[in-house]
């Protein structure tokens, strides 16, 4: 099965572990992900102003590239890219007036009408591959690993682009179950990590991220799985600051969901680029005999 793939900027540098592990898993599942030959940054956040269309131009260009590459579906891994592309697509599909304005503005591009389908890897796995198929490829189930699925905001809100129910999502639960992990449900799964406030109000972002992690551990989680390089930055890269600042803060291994998938599928550990994770992430896998050495 061939499908267009939009990586997003961070997945080429600091978040490359998300890309490499995902591509390896796709290979295992017989999915041929064709990275768009030409693409630009999607803008990461969707413009929420009714009178601001210029910030929607970037994601629309990417959707045009999908069509130009001869595809009608595009898959994303970063949930912020997913949200931005999907919302821009909705606008182009349903708002005739704005569609015309945007198309007229981009006089160097072919007109676009929203006819591409934007998918996240998770809903693609659920709806087009099926958990059974995924399960067939699991050779090293994550038995006894207590993982909390963290959805964050952009996969679930707003409704038009949600890949699951906003209040009680299941997709990542099913995903982790398929991999053989023990899924730890916790209310923080759908709370915000503070996202770009790491620039504006870094202390506030640290606190909300910390709240999520302590919520997860207090429900018995040993690790957290997530889908977004900004969540990863806030919760994994900035965890040292939490450990220093908050009494009772505990070390929590953090993984991209695709890294766990790769491990469960027996994909060589190098594809996971664990050097970009917290050290505790590899240690936990070793203690569960999922990674040797």
């Amino acid at each position: 099965m061939k499908i267009a793939y939009y990586p997003g900027c961070t997945l080429k540098t600091k978040g490359k572990s998300l890309e490499t592990s995902a591509l390896a898993c796709m290979g295992q599942l017989g999915i041929e992900a064709e990275e768009l030959e030409r693409w630009n940054c999607c803008g990461a956040v969707y413009s929420l102003a009714d009178d601001d269309l210029i910030h929607i131009v970037a994601p629309v260009r990417d959707l045009i590239r999908v069509k130009q590459a001869g595809h009608d579906k595009v898959i994303t891994l970063c949930s912020m890219c997913y949200n931005t592309l999907a919302r821009a697509n909705e606008l182009m599909r349903h708002d005739e007036e704005k569609r015309k304005t945007i198309n007229d503005f981009m006089d160097e591009e072919p007109d676009y009408t929203g006819d591409v389908q934007v998918l996240h890897f998770l809903d693609f796995l659920r709806d087009e591959i099926g958990w059974d198929k995924v399960k067939e490829k699991v050779t090293k189930p994550l038995s006894g690993m207590k993982v909390a699925p963290y959805y964050g905001c952009t996969l679930l809100r707003p409704k038009e682009v949600a890949i699951d129910r906003a209040d009680q999502p299941e997709v990542m639960h099913s995903f982790l179950e398929t991999l053989g992990a023990e899924v730890v449900d916790f209310p923080g799964a759908i709370q915000c990590c503070g996202t770009y406030q790491v620039l504006g109000n870094p202390d506030a972002a640290l606190k909300v991220s910390h709240d999520i992690l302590s919520d997860a551990t207090s429900h018995g989680a040993e690790a957290l799985a997530l889908t977004c390089p900004l969540c990863d930055y806030n919760m994994s890269k900035r965890q040292d600051q939490m450990l220093q600042k908050y009494e009772g803060a505990r070390e929590v291994p953090i993984y991209y969901f695709t890294q766990l998938m790769a491990i469960a599928m027996g994909i060589p550990v190098e594809e996971c680029h664990f050097e970009l994770n917290r050290e505790s992430s590899v240690q936990l896998l070793k203690s569960k005999n999922l990674v040797t050495g």
């Binding site: 997003g8 900027c9 961070t10 540098t13 600091k14 978040g15 940054c41 803008g43 990461a44 956040v45 413009s47 910030h55 970063c78 912020m80 996202t195 770009y196 406030q197 790491v198 620039l199 504006g200 977004c228 390089p229 900004l230 990863d232 930055y233």
Partner: peptide, 12 residues
């Protein structure tokens, strides 16, 4: 910081 932080932070 990852690119996604700066892009989104600057936009907002």
């Amino acid at each position: 910081m990852p690119q996604v932080a700066m892009v989104s932070g600057f936009r907002k």
